[in-house]
Simulated assay, not measured.
Amino acid sequence: MPLDFGNHLGTFLRDRRARLDPATFGFVPGRRRTPGLRREEVAQRANISPTWYTWLEQGRGGAPSADVLNRLATGLMLTEPEREHMFILALGHPPEPRYREPEGITPRLQRVLDAMPTSPAILRTATWEVVAWNRAAAALLTDYSKLPREKRNILRLMFSDQRVRAAQEDWLRVAQFVVAAFRADAARAGATAEITQLVEELSRTSPEFEALWRNNDIASHGDGLKRLHHPMLGPIELEFSTFAVEGRPDLTLMIYNPSTAETTEAVRKLVESGTPG
């Protein structure tokens, strides 16, 4: 098949179509001139007309709608990166975010956290649920293993846990920042229903959260300084940074590095002692 450098979407669709086994989808293999599904079979799986699908492969008929592209992603069994790539080829931009409940983390990701013995590190979702942490985080921040799963949410801890509140050097400033960054993260992830549920819950239980939420502030949670009053170490300062997790758009990695060599050594001894935060 000759290369088509002008119709990138059509080339992509033909390539993915050729990779699918007809028998897997209940289509009789029969005698086929080319491997993979026929155009009409892809159209059937995507619930669009065979003519319209043929035009898409041929670069005719204009840009498809997001709905058609999502149907094609389902029909062609595209992975999430493939779906995003198809949207960029067809429309020039990624698809609108659609939030999905986070899956568990892999042992490899947990080992990444565990490789930082003196730097508290956590993995959180777009709705700020903490799904993984290392020993330093348990010792210095919160021992999430002792909390029920539904309580492992940074906003719930910030507005309902007196121990977490007392540990902040300036609780109101931190709370303002957390609410503003949470609003940006959750909206970017398309987690509308999940936001609504959590916001309604926190607004009922915390007038302070309700007031901050009504401010409609937006912030980026990229990096900065975090000052804590630890019950055993006293005042400490941590430099925090946040990172996207490649291949896991539902997760954000947060790392807190002690700002001085003395703090690093103090954290190391605390972690080795097994004393929780």
Score class of each variant (00 low, 15 high):
Thr242Tyr: 07
Trp128Cys: 06
Asp161Glu: 13
Glu237His: 03
Thr125Cys: 06
Arg100His: 15
His230Tyr: 09
Glu208Cys: 01
Pro22Cys: 09
Leu141Phe: 13
Glu84Val: 15
Asn215Phe: 02
Thr192Pro: 00
Asp223Ser: 15
Phe182Trp: 15
Thr54Gly: 10
Gly6Trp: 05
Pro2Val: 10
Arg71Gly: 04
Gly104Val: 09
Phe209Ser: 02
Ile154Met: 14
Arg268Gly: 00
Pro97Val: 11
Gly104Cys: 05
Asp21Ile: 10
Leu147Gly: 06
Glu237Pro: 01
Arg152Phe: 06
Leu56Asn: 02
Asp21Met: 07
Glu101His: 12
Ile88Thr: 11
Arg108Gly: 08
Ala187Arg: 14
Val271Pro: 03
Ser206Gln: 09
Val131Leu: 12
Thr142Val: 15
Phe182Pro: 00
Leu228Met: 14
Glu169Asp: 14
Thr196Pro: 00
Gly61Leu: 11
Ile154Gly: 00
Ala90Tyr: 07
Val174Arg: 04
Leu3Thr: 14
Ala189Gly: 07
Ala139Gln: 05
Ala211Glu: 13
Phe240His: 14
Leu56Phe: 03
Thr196Arg: 13
Gln44Tyr: 09
Gly234Ala: 10
Glu41Ala: 05
Leu228Gly: 03
Glu129Gln: 14
Arg16Asn: 02
Gly10Met: 01
Asp217Lys: 06
Trp52Ala: 00
Asp67Val: 12
Thr127Asn: 13
Ser65Lys: 05
Thr127His: 03
Ala43Asp: 02
Val164Trp: 12
Asp223Asn: 14
Tyr53Leu: 04
Thr118Glu: 09
Gly10His: 03
Gly26Pro: 11
Leu253Met: 14
Thr127Met: 09
Leu78His: 10
Lys226Met: 11
Val131Thr: 13
Leu212Gly: 01
Phe209Gly: 03
Ala66Pro: 02
Asp67Trp: 01
Ala66Trp: 04
Ala189Tyr: 02
Ala211Trp: 03
Arg268Asn: 08
Phe209Glu: 03
Ser273His: 11
